[in-house]
Design a binder for these strands. Sequence first.
DNA 1: CTATTAAAGTGTAAATCACACACGAAGGCA
DNA 2: TGCCTTCGTGTGTGATTTACACTTTAATAG
Lengths: 227, 227
Amino acid sequence: MPHTYEYPRAALTVDCVVFGFDGGELQVLLIRRGLEPFRDRWALPGGFVRVEETLEEAARRELEEETGLKEVFLEQLYTFGSVKRDPRERVVSVAWFALVKPSAVTAATDAAEAKWFPVSDLPPLAFDHADILATALTRLRGKLTYQPIGFELLPQKFTLTQLQRLYEAVLGEPLDKRNFRKKALSYDLLIPLKEKHQEGPHRPAQLFRFDPVKYERLKKKGFLFEI
Amino acid sequence: MPHTYEYPRAALTVDCVVFGFDGGELQVLLIRRGLEPFRDRWALPGGFVRVEETLEEAARRELEEETGLKEVFLEQLYTFGSVKRDPRERVVSVAWFALVKPSAVTAATDAAEAKWFPVSDLPPLAFDHADILATALTRLRGKLTYQPIGFELLPQKFTLTQLQRLYEAVLGEPLDKRNFRKKALSYDLLIPLKEKHQEGPHRPAQLFRFDPVKYERLKKKGFLFEI
DNA sequence: CTATTAAAGTGTAAATCACACACGAAGGCA
DNA sequence: TGCCTTCGTGTGTGATTTACACTTTAATAG
């Protein structure tokens, strides 16, 4: 069923930069393209926006269709509109970035052609997706220091060391343990659990979860997590 | 000449939130709509993106066509994609925010149906433009504290008091004069001129301009202007 | 030419915050 | 029982931030 307009129109897509954290390095979820152009290249999950859905709905739908991920933290990143970014025709893409917890990470890996890559070792990407990814990384680094979004990448129960590893992985620099813990606890955002995290022949670590009420408040208001 | 596509496509527009500063209050440039829908309502300058121009080109073109403004500071803000934001059909709009100097302000006022409004006293706006404007204001407040973009709103030569008034207008709170000056000068960004600014029966003020090289560097790298 | 007016310009002390840094505690395992 | 590994903690120093009030300057009016 064709649709006709007086003037030519760009096609509108969404693309998602999905970050995950495996305890060591920051990872990005890519899918292998089955179709031309850029067949067999790795690309960001995404696709065309339908005319009856919002941009965010489109991003969530595509994410679920292509990777199985649902109910992730999702935030609009930037809209990419170079004229020749798609060789076929004019395509404008609204890019999003998503943060997912480790439990979701394994689910996503089941998706046929989806795979996690460490940000430090990415394959060549289709279209201008390398630009999009670079933009997303910059944004993630920036955001991490003034919003508590890092927790979106951790499991519900986590240790302070895990939190520190995450900050170190994103920021790309080692942090002082004592100062980090002092600062992390100073926001009164972390609730210590009764449980401990035992792993290996050494003192077990205290587990924490974050206080969802204070978390939401800080996410809106912002803070300054500079270490 | 009609254009036909297999699936329906959203129309793509740009809208610009143009901020100016008159020495007292922060102002926004609006234009009165001549056509339905929302005829005679005030709206953000903007219009349809042509298929052979980038999003930024579209924003600059519309801005010049509708307000006469050229070569302004322009930055992408957010893309608004609610399904019903335009009553006619699906329209997705990439919003931008612009900062202009007072010299440009008067030029813009000449444009037939363009007018400056103080942000504290806005008329009802067309479409979801009130949302867009609110988003832009939040962004401007945020940016001002970590990038030196405030200078985009001042004349080339300005006094420290003018700079302080601007920060106070945007942030909506009074600032301490001595601390403000100390901080503003500490970035080594302001160059004192030989001239003074004389106005009224009192001591004249030192005029400054900013160092364009350091300005660019700081704009990229960011700083932290918290007072 | 003197007094008045109004904004410009300036310094310091106290409090707070950021940073660097090292060692005892806990538990598993051999 | 001793060893290994990671967890968890406090303090002193220097830097930064904050709060705060008076003198300087030039124009204008009398």
